[in-house]
């Protein structure tokens, strides 16, 4: 995949903006949820990223450990670190967007069927409570 080589750069981080490792974590989450870092894309090595950002290797390690714990990235011994398949922010966001799309379609259908605002709202609540149980 050519995207793997795409030069996505983590946004700059600053000591004034809270814990450094957290900024790295957030930067990657954003990059992944915006689709700029796709499944299977390789992350830079500890040393490489530490050098690029001028932060301690320990800081990068800590950020990667957190991302790994959240299931957003995978570490493969000897191979490197990659964006994981599931459970990432991106899939969550895509799901939310898809849900909105489906709801819009449902509302359109209901209107076309001549349902009033109140009836549409009631319908939503009924479906929602049914789904929960």
């Amino acid at each position: 995949m050519s995207e793997k080589k795409s030069a996505w750069v983590l946004p700059p981080i600053s000591v004034a903006a809270g814990p450094l490792y957290q900024q790295i974590v957030d930067g990657f989450k954003r990059g992944i949820s915006e689709g700029r870092l796709v499944e299977g894309a390789a992350l830079p090595s500890f040393r490489q990223l530490a050098g690029d950002l001028m932060v301690s290797v320990i800081t990068v390690k800590r950020a990667y450990e957190e991302l790994e714990r959240d299931g957003i990235i995978l570490r493969r011994q000897g191979l490197g670190t990659f964006v994981a398949r599931n459970g990432d922010d991106r899939s969550r966001q895509i799901k939310a967007e898809r849900a909105e799309e489906l709801m819009r379609a449902a509302v359109r259908e209901a209107r076309e069927a001549g349902l009033a605002e109140k009836e549409i709202a009631d319908l939503f609540h009924r479906v929602n409570t049914k789904e929960k149980s």
Partner: peptide, 23 residues
């Protein structure tokens, strides 16, 4: 400092730099 297994003591008033890269 980063490329070798090296220990560094650095005395400095560049606190924001140190906060970034000092272990």
């Amino acid at each position: 400092m980063n490329q070798e297994e090296r220990t560094v003591i650095i005395s400095s008033h560049g606190l924001s730099e140190l906060e970034r890269f000092a272990d």
